[in-house]
Design a protein around this nucleic acid. Structure first.
Lengths: 139, 139
DNA sequence: CAAATATCAGATTTACTGAGATCG
DNA sequence: CCGATCTCAGTACATCTGATATTT
């Protein structure tokens, strides 16, 4: 084991890479991207949101919101219309199709979390999550 | 706190992003890239290596080894010569300048590890590292 | 001829930036 | 005129793939 492989920063980036690989692979098997799941989750409560609000909730750049919504509209998962109250905005709302899609993806995402954490016993999982919460970026 | 922010995969990716940001910023302050540090570390024992061997030790793609070595040669940190025993290969060796550079960068990298883990007490640091080692990708 | 090595050009992914158009 | 919103084009970064020339 070299020094590189024992650096905390390296361990973090490799573990993150593995986790991301598992999650995006499971989503890809369902024909979805991570961005789509994040946007559907933001809309899953049912309340219509502007694209800025979606970006804020899903932690996505405005550009990526625009592009991903175009794909979701094509799938019929969301409805995007100009806001009658403020023509600068779009009002985006999840459809029935989108609700079903989100439920399906949410199950996949939950299973992926379990898969990612499988190498750890319950106690170590708890410690890991506690530590990771303390290591989150400021904002 | 939304569901997104509590997903283990999300916590991992955000913590990794923060750690990477801290490390690469500290290295950038010294005018170095992460790749340079990783290659210098691989060569720091003093043994000459082929570029394939460097890529293997530093976990870098062959392409990135080639490009990064060109920069390191320009800095005088390494010496790259055709292998007299096998003309397909280059023999790369660290120079005195490279040793000094590596020592300087190693101190920066060590300080960055401390900075990354600063939000955690000793026990949680230990648990985190134990968990992360179990979450490393195969291979 | 098959395999290995280094190099070059470019694709890919995720995240972000700048500029234009529209509107409040 | 200023600021917010959405869209488009393009940048930045790390990583990887394909093609090529050379040598074993």
């Amino acid at each position: 084991m070299s020094a590189l492989n024992d650096l905390p920063t390296w361990l973090l980036s490799q573990a993150s890479h593995r986790a991301h690989g598992i999650l995006s692979e499971r989503l890809a098997e369902a024909g979805a991207r991570g961005y789509e799941y994040r946007i559907l989750e933001a809309l899953s409560e049912g309340a219509p949101l502007s694209q800025v609000a979606i970006g804020s909730a899903a932690r996505l750049d405005r550009r990526d919101v625009t592009v991903t919504l175009t794909a979701l509209v094509e799938q019929g998962a969301v409805d995007r219309q100009p806001d009658p109250a403020d023509a600068r905005r779009n009002v985006v709302q999840i459809t029935e199709t989108g609700h079903a899609r989100f439920a399906s993806l949410a199950a996949i995402v939950a299973a992926a979390q379990t898969e990612v954490l499988a190498p750890l016993d319950q106690e170590l999982q708890n410690s890991l999550l506690q530590a990771l919460r303390l290591l989150q970026p400021e904002k």
